[in-house]
Design a protein around this nucleic acid. Sequence first.
RNA 1: GCGGCCGUCGUCUAGCCUGGCUAAGACGUCAGCCUUCCAAGCUGAAGAUCCCGGGUUCGAAUCCCGGCGGCCGCACCA
Length: 506
Amino acid sequence: MEGRELHEAIMELARRRGFFWPSFEMYGGLRGFYTYGNLGTKLKRNIEKAWRRFFVDPHGFLELDTPVLNPLRVFKASGHLEHFKDVMVECFKCHRVFRADHLIEEEAGLEYVEAMGEEAIKRLLREKGIRCPECGGDLGEPQEFLTMFQTQIGPMGGEPGFARPEAAQGMFLNFKLGFHHARERLPFALAQIGKVMRNEISPRRGLLRLREFTIMELELFFDPQEGQCPWFKEVSDESVKLITEEMEAEGFKEPLEVTLGEAVERGYIKTEWQAYFMGVSKRFITYLGVPPERQRFRAHLPEERSHYSTQTYDHEVYLESWGWIEVAGHAYRTDYDLKAHQKASGVDLTVRRADGSRFLPHVVEPSFGLDRLVYVALEVAYRKRDGRTVLALPRWIAPIQAAVMPLVARDGLPERAREIWSQLKDAGLTVEYEEKGSIGKRYARQDEIGTPIAVTVDYQTLEDDTVTLRDRDSWRQVRQEASRLPELLRSYINGEREFDELGRPL
RNA sequence: GCGGCCGUCGUCUAGCCUGGCUAAGACGUCAGCCUUCCAAGCUGAAGAUCCCGGGUUCGAAUCCCGGCGGCCGCACCA
């Protein structure tokens, strides 16, 4: 299965089995919002856990949870108010809508018009006498379109508030205290998993483009004079597929294959820190089930980059359904944000060096779209076998870790199976009990939601208290004593053991 | 926002062109029976404002208009 068909099959499965579905359906629906069901919530949580395991915990970084709603002052200072806004013009005649800055660039041969600001755009539009490029018609008054959601904080039209379009500002606003909590030593990082909102013009493709979504972001603060990353040697031999800014500019489609060490040496990646996180990023995405050959890093051209970034690499994954899609952005934000907030607030955010000099730390940011990762994990795991669907999710992210079932629902088998179910739950595993229908049907149901292990209680169990364990991917079975399951299954789910090590083959 | 396609139980579909019994089937769900390892079978049940609103008509899932929503393309995606 490929292309759109695959996407539809996954969306259907997601809805039918309770991973996710469009929100507000009972009121007619609204594009760009999705609701996660039981399995989706668990999958999402497991991906979050994996992210912490790769990005936060090994380095002792600090986590934050900051407000979604921010006052105007924050986004004025951060530059978002200026840059998350596009000036649009509509043609009177054919009613096509264009971005004014792009129109000026094309028609007047200018560059980086967006950066000139709103007034200049409006003026240029008049001065250059620009008309509709499609039909030659007159253009209407330029309209601003702000991609941030706006509201009022407090009663009676209090203070304008905006929903954050990224979690990063929370880390910058709390840099000072965060730095203190990190014992005032660089480098350190603040990380956050949280909801963000963007009023996208045209949300599409299910979870891939939402108006409200969850982002997993990390801001690494370091002294630009000491740009070395202490962990870099762990990934410097890791090879990555790179489309550098130069290659992008010249239209090369085939990525360069280099090690991260070489990429830094040759200047493709500006800092060791960024290269380090790209290496971790590759390992993290691989851990979610995406093979390395389906991953690449693509540099943004200057006009594609956000206002705060001096170098950005998108981490992209190849999907059968949609081609290359972005799952993470790796941005070198320099001291842009701290400088902006220091200037606007008057609060000194500089840090002292051993020699007494003061400076603003530089920032490298890996930023993941969690919802996209949920979809990617599902699509990459989607298999067909003998006409059945198997979700071959890596077992460490599977929403249900094991299913316990009696071979048949009688003769005391359900009772024993329920006991085992309880023991596994008590051991901290996410386990389902199922006795409905035939055993084959139950295996098929569990395959479809990606449950890696099925535990079956049969007549032999009543004699010697052993059960069969069945592997989702190979459908092979082994036999093991019920009392050893909590320990064995836990290590299996963690990846410390392989299926063959779980018992005697049958 | 423009253009093309589309919208029927939880899911997938039939019915629509050519208006007419109580909107049909399969899967799934529930109850019961059966069942000793890969979506078996039997009996019964529940489940649909046919996306919404308006119009035409004796009569609309079906025809017409408007809206909402979805998918794709264009544009946009920091």
